[in-house]
Design a protein around this nucleic acid. Structure first.
Length: 416
DNA sequence: TGGGGTTAT
DNA sequence: ATAACCC
């Protein structure tokens, strides 16, 4: 039975790397990428001096007065670079799944099988591992699972080399038999290194997590509920009675996370393909009048429309999301309203010079009034516009030829 | 605590 | 439409 071989690729402090490419002068200085009052990430120079991810600008400047800050509120350069990485991996193998802007899972099982066959036909069964082996575990070349994972480590090295050669980016990789383990193991040696996990060390890896919330798939809410059950670490979760867990969290979540606690994860690598939605948001201290709301929306829309135009598909749904100020529990209170985009407006998405902007603003303001009684005082701290339910144009209308293919100038001569 | 994303219910 | 998850 051939095991799966999954590679998790995780770029080092991604936004900071993109900024260093845009401005090489930053290279040897400690610097951070700022969004509002937060340093969302920083380079390793800054990390040496005590700056951490998601630190407030105040704390960061206190720790490190020389810290240079770059505004990173416009994600365009990061998004574009991110898709270049995904596309590059897609040239090796079709099964590439994005996780955020800086991580990708690649199912390399087929590539491994092919190389394994070539190796066996050449009569040579020796393969050298690339990078670290978790726990420094000895490799047994008579164990075909070991051999497969070692071949995976070679492929991971090729991925990282390709990303560095063509995009100038460094990152980590983890190689293991499923997504969960590949992700966990990729973080074990940190900048610009890679690690392979052999099955015998799986329990050591999963038990090295000190809190259950470090298990990808167990988030804030589930961790809190588990805590009320007395479940604090991976051992607790493994040992907890399944029936009681299912009663608290529902069968689906309970069974999934309990398997995760054993390092088991049968979820497939699902190719991400083009994005399912395009959104743009802005947060602020205060927005409390209809006129301000309209101004904010008018700021968000042009950027979004441009991205949709470049994508080539047409959205069928538009959504407005708001966050209302609340002193307690600042983080959770988002509401949204969405509606279909009227067909006559959908048509205008692919075309320039059509005035699609003001009708969209009107629709979004109607959605706003469904959430907020504008005759009463209100206090917003965030506005977000999202286009989703993207449909390809009829193929006669040119545009998206498929995600991975570059847009090419049309051949001379007629297309009938 | 930003500015994005996804899937399940 | 919301709630959970991910970065």
């Amino acid at each position: 039975a051939a095991c799966r071989v999954i590679v998790h690729v995780d770029l080092d402090c991604f936004y900071a790397q993109v900024e260093m490419i845009r401005n090489p002068e930053l290279r040897d200085k400690p610097f951070g990428v700022q969004q509002k009052s937060i340093v969302v990430t920083c380079n390793y120079e800054a990390r040496k001096l005590g700056v951490k991810k998601l630190m407030s600008v105040r704390d960061a400047k206190e720790k490190c007065p020389q810290l240079v800050l770059v505004n990173g509120e416009d994600l365009t350069p990061y998004r574009e670079t991110s898709y270049k990485v995904t596309e590059l991996l897609g040239e090796f193998c079709p099964l590439v799944e994005r996780l955020g802007f800086d991580e990708n899972f690649v199912d390399v099982t087929e590539m491994v099988e092919k190389r394994l066959n070539q190796l066996q036909q050449s009569g040579c069964c020796r393969v050298r591992v690339s990078g670290h082996v978790y726990n420094n575990q000895a490799i047994n070349l008579h164990d075909t699972t070991h051999v497969r994972l070692v071949i995976g480590s070679r492929i991971a090295e090729e991925f990282r080399e390709a990303i560095h050669a063509s995009l100038g980016l460094t990152g980590c990789a983890g190689v293991a038999s499923n997504k969960l383990l590949s992700k966990l193991v990729s973080g074990t040696f940190k900048p610009n290194q890679q690690t392979v996990l052999l099955p015998e060390s799986c329990q050591d890896l999963i038990h090295s997590l000190d809190h259950i919330q470090k298990v990808p798939g167990i988030g804030y809410k589930t961790a809190k509920r588990l805590e009320t059950l007395g479940v604090r670490n991976v051992c607790d979760l493994q040992a907890f009675p399944s029936a009681a867990l299912e009663k608290e969290l529902g069968v689906s979540v309970a069974q999934r996370i309990q398997k995760l606690s054993y390092g088991e994860d049968d979820s497939p690598v699902t190719p991400s393909g083009p994005p399912q939605s395009f959104s743009d948001e802005d947060s602020f201290k205060k927005c409390s009048s209809e006129v301000e709301v309209k101004e904010k929306i008018e700021e968000l829309l042009p950027n979004l429309l441009d991205r949709i135009y470049k994508d080539g598909r047409q959205p069928r749904t538009v959504r407005l999301t708001i966050r209302q100020f609340s002193a307690t529990d600042k983080w959770f209170n988002r509401e949204s309203r969405q509606c279909p985009i009227p067909p006559h407006l959908i048509q205008k998405f692919g075309k320039e010079s059509s005035n699609i902007l003001s009708p969209l603003v009107d629709i979004l303001m109607k959605l706003f009034r469904k959430m907020i009684d504008v005759d009463l005082p209100f206090h917003l701290t965030l506005l977000s516009v999202c286009f989703s339910n993207l449909k390809d144009l009829p193929s006669s209308k040119k545009g998206s030829i498929g995600f991975y293919l570059k847009q090419m100038s049309p051949p001379s001569g007629s297309g009938k």
